[in-house]
Structure formats: C-alpha cells, structure tokens
Nucleic acid binder design. Sequence first.
DNA 1: AGGAGAGATTGAACCGGTTCCAAATCATTA
DNA 2: TAATGATTTGGAACCGGTTCAATCTCTCCT
Lengths: 340, 340
Amino acid sequence: MSEVTIRDVAKAAGVGVGTVSRVINNHPSVREATRKKVEEAIKALNYHPHTIARQLSLGKTSNIGVVAPFFIRPASVERLRGVETILAEHKYDLILYNVETKERRDELFETLPRGDMFDGLLIFTLSPSDEVAERLVNGPIPVVLVDASHPRISRVIIDDVQGGYMATKHLIDLGHERIAYISDILESPFEHVGASTLRYQGYQQALQEAGIPLRPEYYRQDQHGVLQARKMAHDLLSLPQPPTAIFAASDTQAIGVLQAAQERGLAVPEQLSIIGFDDIEIAEYLKLTTIHQPLFTSGVEGAALLFQCMEDPARRRQPTEILLPLRLVERATTAPPAGM
Amino acid sequence: MSEVTIRDVAKAAGVGVGTVSRVINNHPSVREATRKKVEEAIKALNYHPHTIARQLSLGKTSNIGVVAPFFIRPASVERLRGVETILAEHKYDLILYNVETKERRDELFETLPRGDMFDGLLIFTLSPSDEVAERLVNGPIPVVLVDASHPRISRVIIDDVQGGYMATKHLIDLGHERIAYISDILESPFEHVGASTLRYQGYQQALQEAGIPLRPEYYRQDQHGVLQARKMAHDLLSLPQPPTAIFAASDTQAIGVLQAAQERGLAVPEQLSIIGFDDIEIAEYLKLTTIHQPLFTSGVEGAALLFQCMEDPARRRQPTEILLPLRLVERATTAPPAGM
DNA sequence: AGGAGAGATTGAACCGGTTCCAAATCATTA
DNA sequence: TAATGATTTGGAACCGGTTCAATCTCTCCT
C-alpha cells in the first residue's frame, strides 16, 4: 500500500528529493509553480511521509513518554488527562508505560532513560533512587516528576506532610481524640512512594501538637484498594476502644471505610467521621470530606514544565519545583464525635 | 551522551558491524569468543541500540496504537487495562490517542491508517464510516474495533440491543410500567456511537413486548456526565406522572440519577428504581443494579485478536466478530414499585 | 598436505526521510 | 549583452540500525 517514498514523488514530479522534502516541510524557498507540481504528485500517489524515517533523520520523535503506576487509579487518570491537554496543543503523541510490579518499574528505569522513543519523559508517583536519578539527569532527554520527588530533577508535587496535618487537624478541631490512619504499605519502596509515609508524619505532627498520644493500634496499612481498606476499617472498629474518626490516605480507601461503617450500621458522620485524600470525582457524589489535591493541574503543570525543559536545555541544570496547593473540602462525612 | 553507535562498538571490538548486530539479536552463528569480545565492548561503551533506527530498518515498531474517546471514562480505562496486560506479554508498547472532539477524531482517522508508528491499531467505541473503514482495510496494518462495529473489520462487541432489553425487562418483571430511559445524545455520530441508540431499541422492544405504550416524555438525552444525568432525572421526576423506574445508559449517568433521588428525598429502591449499564468498579460500592459488560475482557480479547491478525495476515481478510456476554447484576437499587 | 564443506565474519546496500553544498536558474543592473 | 548576486534546485551523504552476498576460517577427511 503506502510504500510510496519521497523518491517516487520526486520522480513523478520531475524534481529532486530535496525539493519534495522542502515542499512537505513548507520551507519558503520553493517556487510557487514547483510547489504546485509537487503537491499534485503527492496527491496523485497518495504519498504520506514515513514517520519513523522522519524521526530518525530528524533526531526528534514528537512523542513524550509517561510512566504511570496503576494508571487505572482515578488519580493517575486525572493527571493523564491534564497531560493530554498540553500534548494536544504541541501536537505530541503519548506513549504510556503502565507499571504494576517492581520488576516492571526496574525494567523501565533501566531502558527508558536512553530516550530514543520520545523527546521527554514524565514519571508519575515513582520517586527514583539516587542511582536512577543520576542516569536520568545524564540521559539525553529531560525528565519531570509528578507526585514524586528527587532533588536533582524538576518536579510537580504537593506537601504531603501538610496534607496529613490538615486532615488530622480538621478532625482534632471537631473534637476527636481517637483518630485512626489507614494507608497503603509504607515500606513498599514501590507504590506511591513516600506519599503515605509523609501524610503519616503530618498525622503524627497534628496529634503531637494537640497533645494527643499516638496509639500504634490506630494505624493500619495494607495494599491499596477498596476491599483492603474495608477490612482495615473493620479491624479498627472492632477494637475495645474503637476510633471515632478515620483518616484514609486516599479517597479510594475512604470508600472502603464508608462501606465498613455501613455494614456495621454505624452512622456517618454521627458515629464515625471519615476523611479521605485526593478529592477524586466521585468524592463529591459520596459527600466525602477530603483533602483536595489538584490532580488535573498536576498533569498540566508537569507537561508544561517538561516542554519548557525540552525547549531550553539550560532549565535542566537547575531543577524546578512546583508545589501545588492543598485544600480541605468539608462535605458530609466529618462531624464532632458523638456526645459533643 | 548515548551517541555511541553500532559502528563504534564494532571498531572497539575489532569486528564488523554485522557481527555486533548478530550479537545484539543473539543470532546463533557467532563464535563464543567473538560474542564475549563484543559484549565487553558494548558494556565498556555503555552502548544501547537506537530504537528508532532499529524500527526503520526492521520495518516493525513493536508499538500498538489505541484510539480511545474520553479515555478518562471508567469504562475506557478498564478496557485499556485489559489491553495493557496483553501488550506486556508481547513486549509491545502502547501509544495512546485520546479523542474528545469530532475534529480530533477525523484528524486521527485521516492520519492513523498509514500506521507507520505502530504495527497494529485498536479503536475503542468509535465506529468508522464506510469510507474510513475502506481506508483501514486497505491500510498496511491490521485494525480491531472494541465496542464499535463495522462489517469489514474484526471487532469485539456486546449486544447492546439485548442489553437494553435485559435492563428494561428486569424493571418490567418487577412490576414497573412507568419506565424512563436516559442516555447521552443519540444523534451524535461521535461519542459512544450507536450503543445508546441500540440500548434504546432494546428498551422499546421490551416495552412493546409487555404491551406498555412508549411515552416520549420518558426519554431524555444530553451530554454524557453525572451532572447532566442529574438534571435529566430531576426533569423526569418533576413530570405530572413521574416514572417509577429509570434506566440509565451508563453507570456514570445512573450516579446522577441516584443523586437526584437523594436530593428529592426519594427512597431508592422503594420509591424509585434505578438501573445502570456497564458495572464499573464503583457500582458495587453503590449497590447499583446494572447490566454487567466485560470491560476488562473486551480489552484483553481485542488486543489478543489484534495480535492474531498481526501474526497471520490471512485473518485480516475474514473479519472476526467476538460477542461478549451481558449479565444482569441485581443489587439494591431496583425493587417492585411502591404499592406492589 | 590438499581440498571440500560448514560455519563465522565482513561491509556495502538498504530502510525513508533531511540537510547542505554545489550547480543551475532567474532577475537586475551597468 | 555580460556580469553580478539572489533564488531555486539537485542529489550525495547522513541518521543508526539490519541483511545478505561474498569472503575468510576452521575442521575434517583422504
């Protein structure tokens, strides 16, 4: 089918290949008559330039790569959507690398920095080790982290410690003292690295500030997911002295907590307050109180920053940090504890 | 940085480029001693083959393209996840084309069939016109449709008419007669082409079969989205004789209906039955009765079929149709109408 | 030792674009 | 009309791989 090459067009139009190339890239120095001749030949042969060949000789791909762990999670999807809007503006295509295992992550961190398939790389949520960061910095293409961090690489992040603090403080201000925290696994160097841990720090800070002692039994961790969160909530609520409020490290996990409360016939927020994190779309419908983080915006900013780095290599030397604001969104799942 | 080419390696190892190439692709006829020499040179120079150059000379990209309208919708995301599992097995990468406007769709349908960026193309939800289909069939790479249809192209689909029928029949069997249907815009030749229309046909069929007259005021359409659905539900429930059951063409829209019911203080399912379509993840948490369609599986099957077509070009001549089963999932949002 | 045949190796040609130097054409002016 | 300079144009060389025909090296056998 489309085995028509630029040389075929040149022959058909009776010109040289250079001229055809110039017409395609509408370079100014082509006489009008010639241009027309070539354009006709192109149409007649139904010629379309071969993208890969073009990329090779240009040394530019017009693709950007995105590494997204669990891109099915609502948060990743929202970010991706943000990225997409910027890419569309720049006429860039998106190569998506999903990551669901540690092995896959390592494989990608090994191969991607060569960056011969794209002109820029966006990494979501996975904070690189010093060694990987080193490779990324020295690699041929710019990299921007979104929801992940490393001092040597430009990044778009939120202050997770502050987020954890805000959520916990909100519960304390309502009068709660028995406040639990559930999250995905902190030690996992893999998923959502750091975020849960940092939020936990914020949680601890707020408690300490209020003079509320930390109770180890009020902290649970498990794989991310509604089901696991539901299980953890049940465990917490079965304690001799159950918490009056639960802070879940993500809205998805908060849904599991809501579910558990419902199953136990506990009224929310009268008997149990629940606060999430992220403010994903469905949180509004569920009337879930949560900490809003600008997910869509993080994608937009990350992509925009990446394009800046691509245009101006100098920016790569001096990593930029964009810190996005958090906001408490009070809906209907938090209230003062029973009896206040 | 990585400007090391295969010729540099050849020189360093004191062999010809052909030999280096053979080592890279571990072709058998290389003597052990030579192989070792080359491998050392590769390591010493930190050489990595240039993907794009490889693709050009091989005429193969190891990418597959996916066109997904509104890939942020939970249904698209689930499908994508299915696709991803198959790609990972085959070591293929994923180039994602999001579509949110008619212009973008047309642009993609114009440029993608050339298929020089990938070895196979998956199109979600957008049924091609005869003209586009013609181009796809004659194009250089195989194409598979998922949740979209054209007689000349292999596809993975569900029976939307039957789905509409099942949902409506369920409500009728419960005793409902005042059954409304809401959907996204039928005439839109663009989004979710056909599905809503076909489900509407199933709805009509079921009503007719039960001898229930069709009431035009019980059918509403608007852009896809929770908010729009909520508005439509309010309109329906404000009618002098409001419906006792609402069938929403997607779970997302069903959420809007749930919201409206809640706002009006209508008990679900006692005063209003609601049934959705898709069975997205959150439907379970919401206890939404719905028609389950195998979203994840559709991605898996679509990708698998595509790989078959890529391996065996003969399969392209004879388009395959894979019809996935639908299933009614009864949860807690449907019940007999009040007073039965 | 000489020769046949299998196996290993080389490097030019190719994939399909872009670029750039040199050559050709055109327009302008003396 | 010839000379001069500005525009256009042609096409070889290049991007970095793979491939294949030709050549070189071994082994093994008589």
